[in-house]
Nucleic acid binder design. Structure first.
Lengths: 112, 112
DNA sequence: TTCCAACCCGTAGACTCGCTACGTATGAAG
DNA sequence: CTTCATACGTAGCGAGTCTACGGGTTGGAA
């Protein structure tokens, strides 16, 4: 998978992963792998900065906890994050509809 | 529509638009608008450099022609471009499958 | 006949953001 | 005591889309 195709969709992915769950960064990466059937294997250098960005934006919130000597920062969605997720899902549908209208088979569906 | 979501998908869009057609840049932009139901309104500063990139890559080829005093550069797919388009469509399906596996409803489909 | 919209091409530079490469640390297994 | 999985993070790069220009023609409206 080309690297750039993720551009602009990562936020949606992270928000969706946190929908109804509390996860720490590392677990988010694993969840993404699992849910995408292995297609999405995001490096930490992609995910951690993105989570901080979402936190600055007020879409997620986090707390530190120590589990068996390991520091982990657990994230969860805020109310604003929930709303953002709804919008992201809508934007995704619009996006795919637009692309598929073009990619869709054959020269021309209807000659307007 | 956020600007970045197009990232990495523009080539597929352009190749698909030229599939079985000879079009000049301006016409490509209009075709994209039409086929996407108005969702895709790409600026010339996006399309022209992208077309030149595709031409350098050998996926499209172009000739100049003069239509009623106007210079236009008409593009068409090469053999390599045809093959690239097939790959782009496959990549698109894989991409959407991966994203939708994550965005898809609810907390978890199956707790592995 | 003057003006403006539509047509048509193009480049320079900014900006964004995912990725590479790196650094730190703990716990368990070998 | 070394190595691997777990777990966090940053700095800087790179690629590609967008903004903002600039150039030129045609045709119709005012």
């Amino acid at each position: 998978m080309k690297p750039d195709v993720l551009r602009g969709h990562l936020d949606a992915l992270l928000l969706a992963t946190l929908d109804g769950r509390r996860l720490h960064g590392y677990a988010i990466i694993e969840a993404l792998q699992l849910r995408s059937g292995g297609a999405l294997d995001l490096p930490t250098g992609t995910v951690y900065p993105a989570l901080r960005r979402l936190e600055r934006a007020g879409y997620v919130s986090s707390e530190w906890s120590t589990v068996s000597g390991r520091q982990r920062r657990t994230y969860h969605l805020t109310k604003a994050g929930q709303r953002a997720l709804v919008q992201e899902r809508t934007a995704w549908r619009e996006f795919t509809a637009a692309i598929e209208g073009v990619l869709g088979e054959g020269p021309w569906p209807a000659q307007a």
